[in-house]
Nucleic acid binder design. Structure first.
Lengths: 182, 182
DNA sequence: GACTTTGGCTAACACCGTTAGCTAGATTGG
DNA sequence: CCAATCTAGCTAACGGTGTTAGCCAAAGTC
């Protein structure tokens, strides 16, 4: 947890965002309704709107929190090296598997960037860019691969017996080779 | 369009599925409500349930149609060759950009495989597997990359100026190189 | 002490997927 | 040919969603 993205809000607004995040992680997206958030905070749903503009903004607060946490996970990694890319990818997958509902909310739709805590998206993206040695195209390809593997795994899209560790390795090795020999 | 996946259903059920697909592609997922589907067919919403078990089954019919169409797009490709992978990937992206709402419905959640037209998922997956020379891990990595690039593009997740053609090329080349030199 | 702001509340709206129960008409069996 | 059944529509309704309007008591401020 980071609680860093939640600054600049009233305590009550932070309490509401925390309740919403907890609800999401416990019960999934269907559990995240304004009425249930309100119930958890001890008020009625319409009163939420005294603190939060609407559900989209509430979700944006949660997403900001998620980006901050993801950035922290990256930044806790051993400092760069020859297989920095593999490390970042492993951390990415780990985050998503640890917090699947949050990851889905963060990545499943267009981002309301204007509602996000400023800078938090770029901060989470930075480590991957560094791991590819500043190669934008490779970084985007690597992100796409990581997100694709992750979300397809979360959605149970691969065949039942599929060895995903090996598929991850195949992809990471291919991308790392492309980066190592420019 | 294929209309191949819709067999074994009453004409009315096929009409309903067609209306639902049209509604989805015109107005997006929010436009796909049982009441609006019913309106388009000229009946009231509860009457739909005389022909379709529930919304999930209706969506599964649409998804089956989507898989059949995607398979057709693949099968229309020039027969294999050294850069078969690049061709399949290009066709994949093209399908998704042409029919974004359908693509999102097909890939955005766990698949209710028991509700799908039989064999349609495997048929759509086959060309990619062939393009990687039967290498399962590479095929999965390539699929993940393609889906990641596609859905991140559809969701507007890359930076505004990002040159996605180059990112696609970077990824495809890396994966093709991994496949070509085993 | 009067005024304003804050943060609760209830009632309500328009939508959602879905179920129950009714019924006119078509189809089928004897 | 009539009776029974089945088909496919209907309305009303339930419990859920996000959200708005309008009211009001308590707290803070001049």
């Amino acid at each position: 947890m980071a609680s860093s993205a939640a600054s600049g809000q009233s305590p009550r607004a932070r309490e509401i965002a925390a309740a919403a995040l907890a609800l999401l992680e416990e019960d999934g997206p269907d559990g995240l309704s304004m009425r249930r958030v309100a119930e958890r905070v001890g008020i009625r749903a319409p009163s939420l709107y005294k603190h939060v503009p609407d559900k989209e903004a509430l979700e944006a607060a949660i997403i900001s929190e998620g980006f901050a946490d993801l950035a922290e996970a990256f930044e806790a990694l051993a400092p760069a090296g020859p297989d920095a890319l593999a490390g970042v990818m492993r951390a990415y997958r780990g985050f998503a598997l640890r917090r699947p509902h949050l990851y889905r909310l963060m990545t499943g739709r267009p981002l309301a960037r204007d509602l996000l805590a400023p800078g938090v998206e770029a901060r989470a993206a930075q480590p991957l860019l560094e791991a590819t040695g500043g190669d934008d195209d490779l970084a985007r390809a690597a992100w796409a691969f990581a997100h694709g593997m992750t979300i397809l795994e979360l959605n149970g899209r691969f065949p039942p017996g599929a060895d995903l560790d090996r598929a991850w390795r195949a992809g990471v090795e291919a991308l790392a080779a492309a980066g190592g020999a420019p």
